[in-house]
């Protein structure tokens, strides 16, 4: 058996791959669920914080800025570990899935709040004045005039950040979430063969590569002219 054959036999072993394919597929389902939950809740919470911040209530804004800074400073893995291994000492014992979801949603909330807020503040003051002078209320101006323009500005940084954070679902493996990497790792130790890991890697590429390419396209489409 030549070197190449041995390599293929080791890293792309057909028998092992066939055996563990269902595990990897179920891992993909968990990864997708986790990713969607993180994106939806994280972005919604980030937008909500940015809107709260636009009300301009001083002490509230300090609190928002502190929370945002906190979750931008801490490594996501530290937050996950703290939630999973630390919180039970205080009572609640979130599962690995919930710990990963909440941690990454909080991180995405922090980053997206910052981006949404920058978008809102970057809209020229004249837009507020023109809209208010025709009788639109604060809320109507925010939703009809300011946010549509702000969203356009925020889309490129937001997509990049969202992808980077969503990839962090792999961190769930540290707290026993049965997502792709978790499934692949246990399959490797059970079969004593690295093929499942290669399948896992392929699964991530299948899931995230199209998203990255789409993000590149969005970036050029929404690039601000001038």
């Amino acid at each position: 058996m030549g070197g190449w054959d041995r390599f293929v036999e080791t890293f792309f072993n057909a028998k092992v791959m066939a055996k563990y394919l269902p595990d990897i597929l179920s891992g993909m389902v968990v990864t997708i669920e986790l990713a969607l939950l993180i994106v939806v809740t994280g972005l919604a919470a980030g937008l909500a914080l940015a809107l709260l911040r636009s009300l301009g209530i001083r002490p509230l804004n300090w609190l928002i800025i502190f929370i945002v800074d906190l979750f931008r400073s801490l490594p996501p893995l530290v937050i996950i570990v703290l939630m999973y291994f630390g919180l039970p000492y205080a009572g609640p014992s979130p599962s690995g899935f919930v710990s990963t979801w909440l941690s990454l949603a909080l991180v995405l909330m922090a980053f997206s709040e910052e981006i949404f807020w920058a978008g809102i503040t970057s809209i020229h003051h004249g837009q507020w004045e023109a809209s208010r002078s025709t009788g639109l209320s604060y809320g109507q101006t925010l939703f009809n005039v300011i946010l549509p323009q702000a969203f356009r500005l925020t889309i490129p940084p937001l997509t990049n950040r969202t992808i980077a954070i969503t990839k962090g679902t792999a961190l769930g493996t540290v707290v026993a979430v049965t997502e792709i990497l978790g499934q692949a790792s246990s399959a490797v130790s059970n079969s004593y063969n690295p093929s499942p890991l290669m399948m896992g890697a392929a699964a991530y590429i299948v899931l995230f590569f199209p998203v990255v390419v789409a993000a590149r396209w969005i970036e050029t489409k929404f690039a601000w002219k001038r």
Partner: peptide, 28 residues
């Protein structure tokens, strides 16, 4: 907001909404 409907204002820098058509600007 109701009172401001009766007082039109035109600005030096136009302040048109860039994400809307001319018609959209007027109908909002």
């Amino acid at each position: 907001n109701h009172a401001r409907q009766r007082i039109g204002m035109v600005f030096q820098s136009f302040n048109l909404y860039p994400h809307m058509t001319a018609l959209g600007n007027v109908t909002l």
